[in-house]
Design a protein around this nucleic acid. Structure first.
Lengths: 343, 343
DNA sequence: ACTTTTTCTTTACGCGCGTCAAATTTTCGT
DNA sequence: ACGAAAATTTGACGCGCGTAAAGAAAAAGT
């Protein structure tokens, strides 16, 4: 690689012996030029290490190759994993991923969307905060930018929604728990921000009724995104109260369950499904850390690979078609029961 | 806010009754124009919702207001938390943060740096992968772009390093463990990618020798970033072997310790510092989840708020001075002993 | 070898904004 | 109220690249 710094495409074109418009064409699609031409440019490229100025490139284009990814809370490894998956797929599709986290704050969410709008992305994959989201701001954004919602469904927003089938997954777990022991109580936050929580509660109730059991819902306080703490504190209270009518607890999500496990441990309660266990605890999501809790957590896995792939595919289709779909499509993927030691 | 879409600054200037050059000046520094002028522009701004095209703005500037943040592995909540902190500080300083994760892969790290270079950031905060990093690529990047390294110190690279004082923190924990029970063995990966690991090992040995104890180092295999699994599998082996000469284990980091705790739990060993406990386990970093392990994990906290703040401050100073420092500065922050239930 | 098709070159304009110089207007001190 | 200083306007150019049109050159077909 040469030391010489190239200032612009004009210079690079001169050095490679090709005209600038052809070089420009090459950078948009290397296969759009004759093979011999491509090789000459590529040879020059290796020698001089030139790259088009992305600001100049994007200035006139109505749409860029940028691809926004917004998650509600990146410090949650679940979202970090999904984001990683999506990033890979986006890069493979030839786009540049731009990852943003709302850190649980609606104000950040709006800021992120504003920043994205300024970047003129080809499309955005958005997992909204949910109940806390500024609905008007999100709706306005979705009107301006092709948007696929994932994980968290806000009815009517976004062109497409891709997510987890909470009904199916919840039934799967309730069935399993009821079949192998006492029917579960449902443990959740009183005012969950994530709309999945409501779906899961309703699915729990429906399944319990279908099985002829009385639903028991335990709701704990807590507003922020530190679910482990909320599960822990709520767990301590519930276990002290002895208010549970059953020895089996199905937590609305894994992070609550992790906190609940910590509370049970502190109370000296043995968690598991064998003899000598006082409590069964199950979660939902197959959070990366549930393999290393004590005991390991029985849960329902979200098929986050399928969700990631479908989300990106839908977005690419949206971009290619260059028109917004008339009807809002929804795709849900089945969860998978992961039986471990805790229930 | 009006419905009318503004195409460019020319139009917006006309609508606000101010000339374009003055409007341009306003967007660079609202206080650089007369108060009455500023108010007229701001009034128009509320009415028409115009924002300068960032691509056109950045096209000629040698440096933008972009601020790169690269972490080695975002699915680790420790880095997610640091990134969150840094993002906030960066925004407060008037820059636009661009967060990237290398996902543990050197190839991704190089890609991220390439992408950042194309964006012409004012500066970059880089936590490199460490041993696995492509040293030449990182060095070349640091030559072109003002870079502050944090967390992971690669000797001689970057203009500034800000990190955790591993010597001090390790001594703190070894002192504590030796004072309150048997002196600890040191549990780590054989070939850790992160340079902090080596520092911690050496500090452990030095402190043990200072205290007149024989160091015992237990190394386990494992290459990737799934430290919990590595700690778990290594822990199972160590506990089966009964190769430990002590009942106290100091893990090189919290994620290994989380895995080790899971192994101890599976082996039926009671972990803690009280009577009836078979094992003490300690970690390092104060990972967000260590408050919810079973038992809660005794660890040494990194002062990540101070590290974040200092990193950003150093970067801003670097940007303002507009020159690269002659000597490479290093700032280390003291850790804090966090005594919980596990040791 | 000659025609047709494909690809490339030349020339030129436009994008939205930064920025400069000169002319003009406004503000401020007294 | 007047002159100096500060702010704004006017007019113009440049940045790096996309892109269009017309003509030249190369490749492909016969």
């Amino acid at each position: 690689m040469s030391h010489a710094k190239i200032r612009n495409m004009e210079e690079f074109a001169a050095l490679s012996g090709i005209s600038r418009p052809t070089v420009s064409k090459f950078f948009h699609d290397p296969d759009s030029v004759r093979k011999s031409t491509r090789e000459r440019i590529e040879a020059a490229l290796e020698q001089y290490n030139y790259r088009p100025n992305i600001y100049a490139v994007n200035q006139n284009r109505r749409m860029t190759k940028n691809f926004g990814i917004v998650v509600p809370y990146l410090a949650d490894p679940f979202f970090a994993e999904i984001a990683r998956n999506i990033e890979e797929l986006v890069i493979a599709a030839g786009y540049r991923p731009i990852l943003m986290s709302s850190h649980g704050e609606p104000a950040n969410e709006v800021e992120n969307l504003d920043a994205l709008r300024a970047i003129k992305p080809a499309g955005v994959l958005l997992a909204p905060l949910g109940r806390a989201s500024d609905r008007d701001a999100v709706a306005a954004f979705c009107r301006d930018v092709p948007t696929v919602h994932f994980d968290s469904n806000i009815e009517g927003m976004g062109d497409v929604f891709v997510g987890h089938d909470n009904d199916h997954a919840t039934a799967l777990m309730v069935d399993y728990l009821a079949r192998t022991g006492e029917p579960p109580a449902f443990f959740e936050m009183r005012t969950p921000t994530n709309p999945n929580a409501g779906k899961r509660r309703r699915a729990y109730i429906a399944t319990m009724e279908r099985l002829g059991h009385e639903p028991q819902i335990v709701q704990v306080e807590g507003q922020d995104w530190e679910f482990e703490r909320i599960g822990y504190e709520g767990g301590l209270r519930v276990l002290s109260d002895r208010s549970l009518a059953t020895d089996t607890v199905f937590c609305s999500n894994d992070r609550l369950a992790i906190g609940f496990l910590a509370a049970a441990f502190e109370k000296g309660l043995r968690v598991g499904r064998g003899e000598g266990s006082a409590l069964r605890v199950a979660g939902h999501d197959n959070h990366p850390f549930t393999r290393y809790t004590c005991p390991t957590l029985t849960t329902v896995a979200q098929n986050y690979r399928a969700i990631s792939r479908k989300s990106v595919e839908e977005m690419l289709a949206l971009i290619e078609s260059d028109e917004r779909p008339a009807t809002r499509e929804t795709t849900l993927f089945d969860g998978e029961l992961i039986v471990r030691a805790s229930a």
